[in-house]
Structure formats: C-alpha cells, structure tokens
Design a protein around this nucleic acid. Sequence first.
RNA 1: GGUUCCUUCGUCUAAUGGUUAGGACAGGAGAUUCUCAGUCUCUAAAUAGGGGUUCGAUUCCCCUAGGAACUACCA
Length: 492
Amino acid sequence: MDVRVRYAPSPTGLQHIGGVRTALFNYFFAKASGGKFILRVEDTDRERYSDESLEDLYSTLEWLGIKWDEGPVVGGPYGPYIQSERFDIYKKYAEQLVAEGKAYYCYCSPERLEEVRKQQVESKSEYQGYDRHCANLTEAERAEYEAQGIKPVIRFRVPTEGKTTFHDILMGDITRRNRDISPDPILLKSDGFPTYHLANVVDDHLMHITHIMRAQEWIPSGPLHVLLYQAFGWEVPQYCHLPMVMGKDGQKLSKRHGSTAVRDFREKGYLPEAIMNYVTLVGWSLDGSTEFFSKEDLEKCFTLQGIHKAPAVFDYKKLDWFNGQYIRACGDERLASLITPYLQKAGYVHDPLTEEEKKLVSAIVPPVKERMKVLSDVVPLTSFLFEDKPVEDKAVYIAKGSDEESTHKALKAGSEILLSGLKSGEPEADIEAKLASLASELGIKVNGVFQPIRVAITNSTVSLPLFDSIRLLGLDEAEKRLMRGLSIFEEN
RNA sequence: GGUUCCUUCGUCUAAUGGUUAGGACAGGAGAUUCUCAGUCUCUAAAUAGGGGUUCGAUUCCCCUAGGAACUACCA
C-alpha cells in the first residue's frame, strides 16, 4: 500500500509552530516511506478565513522547502484541494446520509441552542450538547419550518448505544461509548458549508489518504469520524495522533508564551534549517543522541516509532542554540546575503547595495558570525558603523580595576601606539602586545587599556573585537573617534 | 462536571526486565580571549507516589495523584 498523507490546515491565522510540526511529520513520513504528501486547504469557516493566512501557508512551506505532491497550485488526480471549491461534494454526501436516515435536518435556531446549553449548565445534567430536538421530525413539522424559510443544518445521528473504537498507531486502541460522543454534531452548516468532521472524512476518503497524522487534540473526535466512515461504508484510515506542543506552563503553545507564528521567527532571523531541525525534535527522536538533521536526513530516517506520546514543551532557548549553530555552519557568502535585509531595514545600507556596501557587508560577516543567535542581532552588533552615538560618560571608559587617571593615560598612549602602528602597517599581534605592555606599565589589566579605546571607537562596552571594528570603520573615522574620546578626558 | 489521553534531570529525550539511568539545551565552575560572544573542559540535576508480578523492575499489571485535550452552525 502506498502511503498517502496530508497536511490540512485551515487558513484562519498565521502558520504556527504546532501546525508546521504536523506538516513536517506528515511530509517526512511520506518521504521516508516513498509515499505522497498532499496539501489540502480546509477553508470551510468563511468567517475566520483570510487571504493573508493562505498566503502565509504557502510562503511558510516554501521557505521551509516543503513541496507537496498534490494540492493547490500543483493540482493532482483528486482535486480540487481547496475545500471551498468542493462545496457540492459535501452537500451530496450529507444528503445521502439524510436519505439513508443516518442524518437529519435540524431547524433549531442558535438562540434555542444557546438556551438548551444554558439550562444544561444550570441543572448540571450529566451530558451536554444538542438535545436532538429535530431528530425525529414529521414531514409536516419539516414542511412547517421550511415554510417559515428556516435554513436547516444537517446533523449526524450518533448512536446512543454501544461504543466505538479506533486504533492509533502510537496510542493503541481508543474506545469511547457512543453516548459520550457529542450528540448529533452538525455535518452541513446552514450556509451549505460542511463542518470539519464531514469535509475531513469525505476528503480523506476521496483523496485516498492512508494515514491521518494530526495533533492529539483530535483524539476525542476520532470515534465520531470512525462512525462517519462506517455510515458511508468506507474503510477507516490509520490514525497517528501527534503529541501536542506546549508552552512553558504546560498549556497548549500560544501567543502568550512568545512567538508562535513561523513568520515571526523568520523575521527575527531564524534559519529555515534550524526551525525545521528543532521543530522536528519536539516530540520525535531518532536515537536520543543525534541532534543535527538536515531535511534530506529526515526525508530518509524519519519513523513513526520515534514519535513520543507525551506532550512536549517548546524550548525557545534550544531553538536559539540550534539557530546559532546553523549560523556558524553557514557559508560566509550566504550569510552576507541573509544579513543584508536586516541592515537595509535598519536603514544602514541601500537597497540594492552599492558596490562599496557589498564589500562592507562581506567584511562584517566573519566577526559577527560567532556572535549571532538570530540574524537580526547583526543590527545592534554593527550599529556603531552606521550611527555614531558617542559615549560622554567617563565612567563607561574606565575598566574594572582601573581609574580615571590610568584610563586617561591608557587612552592617550594607547591611541598613539594603535594609530602609528596601523598606519605603518605593523602586524596587529605586535600592536596588541605593545598595548598589553602599556597596561603593565600603568599597573592595570590589559582590558584597562582596551576598554577605553573600544568605547571610543564602538561607542559601547560590548562590541566586536577592536581590530575588526577599526577595519570595518576605516582608519580615519577610528582616529577621529579616538581623539574625540580623548577630549572627554582632557576637557577639565 | 463528563470523556479520553499522558507522566525519566528545569526542558527535549535515550535506555523496555539486569546500565554507575546515557545525550542535548538551559544552569553552575573553570580554561582561552581586548569586552561580548564563540570554543573547550568539568559539574549538578530525573524514573510522580503506593501496591503487586518477578531472583531482579524506568521497563509489565493495578490504584492514587498530577497534568493536558475535547466537550461550537471553529478547525
């Protein structure tokens, strides 16, 4: 049997970590088993639908390098793959169930439903949900409602006796008494659109989906879906419910835990390979020790057996670590092009880059590479090159273990050593050694000499290494800033 | 409330009857370095609790506790 799996998001929001994790697991499982990965857009909720969400879906998958074998844009033998374009199909199947007595029209108003719900809550009755008011309407009663112009919904007749079991690859058999299944869920809404349950079952069958891999939050509706397959007389696919992605507090990951939209991560400067690698490791492992996986690796070695049952907490710090690792593994040329948009957005360089700026960006890469967790870190790291905000406060120049007088001397003598050395082309190591001996002459630590110089040049106590900074700034500008720094100490 | 699922270091996980319970992130300590980072070394840290089964349980069974998800004309 050829594996056919699908990722079926609904475009009602930006693609988030949890969704992408589901997409990735489906995709890798398909690839690793030589099957097909299908993308299906479940846009049956026209109230929450947005074009932006749909575009975000496509761009996120593209960014990650995930290509679907069948789906929107690329097409396929079982299309269309956008549910809103399959309107008539669902209607047909829903009506078929009505004709067979397995579903029925319901004319209850939202107000009545709300009332029923309220009463159930107040009376603490054992089970909640629809009271099956319209389950056994006579033809006359129906005709009456129709005459009133009420648009009915179609509800599925859930058996009140017996129980339903479905098998989950990870969880084993899961059984639920039919009476515990939410009574008579809506299959077709009054606007003619299907609900998730109907559309999902119909499409998975029509698209020959063999394995349904979705988040564990769907486990409760598993039995209902099985009932639906049985009502249609269709074969039930295999289920594999994926562990949920949680926030620090053990609740479902959401905005309040931090960023969840992949787009946000992308904008902050996470690399697609880092996101892919880390997200796949949330709830899955190969052997407990292998950490780095490329997309190609996962397309080969992903297994269902490696999926964990328990929900997993999303660790932002570990993602940062992965991202840093991938940045450091990145070629300088690629990194230069990855960094450029951030410098442009900050207004530091032109778009497109001038020839001079291209050289500068390339030169920025090596010293910055070891220091970035996310690409956007390049901005604060290099801001001293593009905006000059001199430090006026003497205290900032004074290193720990030094004092104002020594700092003044260090800055003065150090600047001379530095500038004359650089101008005469002396090796940096030699200059560094001279500065170090200056420090011992003054009876201060080496940093006592370097810190005031660095502060003068980079306007910060935290900066790139001194010689890198000067190289990037240009000797003339560096000299100017050194003299300016010195003047602060000589004013009084 | 009801239903279902889950439970190894703080976090992600490995080990399925026999190990000093392993790795990684984060934490702590140290080394290197002009700051920051990076890199390297070391370190602390877990089988939720209670019963069984067994010569032996992280591993199998039961109970308890805790957590989560679902309970919409949303998916």
